Computed example of a mutant assay.
Amino acid sequence: MSLLSRKPQRRTALAYYATPTSDLENCACAPRRAPVKGEMDVIGVEGINKTVGPLYWYSSMNNLNDPPNWNIRPNARADGGDGSKWNYALLVPMLGLAAFRWIWSRESQKEIEKAREAYHQRTAAFQQNLEAKYHAVISEQRRAVAQLSLELEKEQNRTTSFREALISQGRKLAEERKLLEQERAQIMQEKSQLQPLRSVYLNCLEEGDDWQRRAQLMLKEVGETLVERQNIYCSLVLPRSTRLELEKSLLVRSSVDPVAADLEMAAGLSDIFKHDKHCGDVWNTNKRQNGKLMWMYLKYWELLVELKKFKKVEKVILEK
């Protein structure tokens, strides 16, 4: 539908401002006009120069119900009038908005630059801190690696020394084992060679033990006779003839008994009868407290019996 077919409507000043300029210029009811000298350039919010044209009024757009002074006339000055107070009504808000936009943009840019600079500073400080920590960690790890390498080298050297010591000890033990095996073989060979002598030694030892038992029995009897003889010698009431008979019997036995003859007891008995004059005190009732030399001879004869036994065994083995 074209603009000519529309019904004319009553428009106020605000409705006229809301109508696009292109529609007003293309409208058939609006007269064509040349550019007016009163046009002015205003910087919009977006920073683009926009041309605000003069106010065109059509007679049907005035509110005829209102008084004439209240109507907004488009160009009253061209007719020689005083003009309208609404001609520059939007200039101050638009200039204020543009100034606010410019100031706000500038302050925002300053804040952005300040925030960017603070961000760069924080980033640089954080990066420096990270680099310092990284270098510190790397240095610490390098020191730890160096220390561990030194300890590892020490452990390797100690392990090598232990291994060498074990090898040398093993060789030494092998040599000692070889020597022990040789000695064992030699001992076994000697044992096999001495096996016949073992039976001879055992037989001689049995014979020596038998001779030792007979000699000890004889020494026991001789000792009891000597104790009785010394008791008679120390007694004040027992007859002297009894002592002489005991001495005579001991001398005869020492010359007749082969064991006594081996021990050469005759010379010892003669020495006892001649020199042993020791007696206990007057009130002594223990016979074994009398005499000194006879006890020495009895101990000597016991040791001589032990020696004679091994001498006999040695003699038999050497003869074999």
Rank of each mutant, 00 (worst) to 15 (best):
M1D: 14
L3G: 03
L4T: 15
S5N: 14
P8L: 09
A13D: 07
L14R: 12
L14V: 12
Y16A: 13
A18T: 07
T21P: 05
T21M: 08
E25D: 15
C27R: 05
C29E: 14
A30C: 11
P31C: 04
E39S: 14
M40Y: 08
D41Y: 12
G44D: 12
I48K: 08
V52Q: 09
G53I: 08
L55T: 15
L55R: 08
Y56Q: 09
S59G: 10
S59A: 13
M61Y: 07
L64F: 14
N65R: 14
P67M: 08
W70D: 10
N75T: 11
A78K: 03
D79Q: 07
D79R: 06
G81E: 04
G81A: 02
G83M: 01
S84P: 02
W86E: 14
Y88S: 14
Y88Q: 13
Y88M: 12
L91G: 06
L91E: 13
V92Q: 09
P93N: 07
M94C: 10
M94R: 02
G96K: 04
S105K: 11
R106E: 05
K110T: 05
E113Q: 10
R116P: 05
A118C: 07
A118D: 15
T123W: 06
A124R: 08
E131F: 05
A132S: 15
K133M: 05
H135R: 14
I138M: 13
S139W: 03
R143C: 04
A144E: 09
A144V: 06
V145T: 14
Q147S: 06
L148C: 04
S149C: 08
S149L: 12
L150P: 03
E155K: 15
N157A: 13
T160I: 06
E164N: 07
L166S: 12
I167P: 03
L173Q: 13
L173R: 12
E175I: 10
E176G: 03
E181H: 08
Q182I: 09
Q182R: 05
E183W: 09
R184V: 04
Q189Y: 09
N203S: 12
D209F: 03
D209C: 03
Q212C: 10
R213S: 07
L217G: 15
V222R: 01
V222M: 06
G223C: 05
E228T: 15
E228D: 15
R229T: 01
I232H: 01
Y233K: 05
C234H: 02
S241R: 07
T242Q: 09
R243V: 01
R243D: 01
E247K: 00
E247N: 02
L251P: 01
P258F: 00
A260M: 04
D262S: 10
L263D: 00
E264T: 06
A266W: 00
F273R: 00
K274C: 00
D276T: 00
K277L: 04
H278G: 06
C279S: 04
D281E: 12
V282N: 08
N286F: 04
K287A: 10
Q289K: 10
N290F: 01
W295K: 13
M296L: 14
M296K: 15
Y297A: 00
Y297T: 00
K299M: 05
Y300H: 13
W301D: 02
L303M: 10
L303E: 14
E306Q: 13
L307K: 12
L307R: 14
L307Q: 15
L307A: 11
K309G: 01
K309H: 01
K311F: 13
V313N: 03
V313R: 01
V313F: 02
I317E: 06
I317D: 11
L318C: 05
L318H: 02
E319F: 06
